[in-house]
């Protein structure tokens, strides 16, 4: 298992591990490239800068959610509530602006706080009673969705362009939202690979008992991971609002599955202890390019779902092979 904790491994092992990581990135990049080439052949306008900038500006919400989910999966957890928490944050924000007359900044902070709170609740209950986060987050999914309906009276609320600056192209057609999401991704990768906290998380996911025996209390770190997940769902809500100018209490329904799919395509293990934020980013790109490409080709709804599902399954099967080979070598 030392291959996963590259920082602690002796020099030759570290070398081998980084080669394996490089192989993973290359594999994912190749898959992405195949998709892009395929859609460029099938569609007349896919191969254009505007297509790619459009995709880039659509994915910041998925990107930050996937970053958070990578951490959650690494510690052996799962958070099914992210889509609902996103809707809750957007709803709270819309009520603050429309009913209470708050400005965009305090309302935005309120939305983020609600989302972080929801994440903290999931994390605390999971840790305090040692309940699988699958179940706890399923409960929070329902509660957050219900709260979102309650707050908005189940209506789509028009907010206006208070946050539009996040989505409006800044430079070369790229929005600030994408740049922020990119910064979050890079920061998260550094935390995961270069910090004590990151190594602790991998340790928790690999063998929580061992971490405890080493004299480290894993509980605060675990709660923190869920809090960050919630917070990032709030950030994703802001990104969506900035693009759509309206808060829909139905927003993000089923989004959790898309997020988990992106993370798993990137090779993060559902069993915990293994994962990479950069790979997750590739996963997000693959899912998004697939969705955009299929829409541009004009595939009908059933085809879209069948193909997307098949890509997820194939990606995970390939990942299993890769992991076995890496373990065999390590």
């Amino acid at each position: 298992m030392k291959t996963t904790t590259a920082g602690q491994a002796p020099a030759p092992a570290r070398h081998r591990a980084s080669l394996a990581v490089l192989g993973t990135y290359l594999g994912l990049a190749a898959a992405l490239l195949i998709l892009i080439v395929l859609f460029s052949c099938l569609s007349s306008h896919f191969w254009s800068y505007s297509t790619f900038s459009t995709i880039a500006n659509q994915i910041p919400d998925l990107m930050v959610l996937a970053v958070g989910m990578t951490f959650v999966l690494i510690i052996g957890g799962i958070d099914l509530s992210v889509g609902s928490v996103l809707a809750l944050a957007a709803s709270a924000l819309s009520v603050a602006i429309l009913s209470w007359g708050w400005g965009p900044l305090p309302a935005g902070l309120l939305g983020l706080a609600c989302a972080a709170l929801a994440g903290t609740v999931t994390g605390s209950i999971t840790v305090a009673w040692r309940i699988p986060s699958f179940i706890v987050s399923l409960g929070v999914l329902e509660m957050a969705r219900g709260a979102a309906y309650q707050l908005t009276g189940s209506r789509t609320a028009y907010i206006g362009d208070a946050y539009a600056w996040l989505a409006d192209p800044l430079l070369w057609g790229i929005s600030p939202a994408f740049l922020i999401a990119l910064a979050v991704t890079v920061l998260a990768q550094l935390v995961l690979t270069r910090s004590v906290f990151g190594r602790q998380l991998i340790g928790i996911g690999t063998n929580e008992e061992a971490v405890r025996l080493a004299g480290i209390d894993p509980r605060p770190s675990k709660v923190l991971v869920f809090t960050v997940m919630g917070l990032l769902a709030g950030v994703a809500a802001l990104f969506q609002l900035s693009r759509l100018e309206a808060a829909d209490p139905n927003a993000g329904a089923g989004l959790e599955l898309q997020v988990i799919a992106a993370v798993v395509i990137g090779g993060t293990s559902l069993m915990g202890g293994r994962g990479s934020v950069v790979s997750t980013f590739f996963g997000v790109l693959i899912i998004s390019v697939l969705a955009a490409g299929l829409a541009q080709v004009g595939a009908n709804e059933p085809t879209k779902r069948i193909i997307t599902g098949a890509v997820i399954v194939i990606a995970v099967v390939l990942d299993t092979y890769r992991t076995r080979r890496a373990r065999g070598r390590g």
Binding site: S44, S50, T54, A295, Q296, V297, G298
Partner: peptide, 25 residues
């Protein structure tokens, strides 16, 4: 030029509309 589903919802519709606008300028 294109008929696609947005599943009655805002974000999926946005995605489909963006793809249509790219494909058929």
């Amino acid at each position: 030029v294109s008929v696609q589903s947005g599943n009655w919802e805002m974000a999926p519709a946005q995605q489909v509309a963006a793809a249509m606008l790219s494909e058929y300028p």
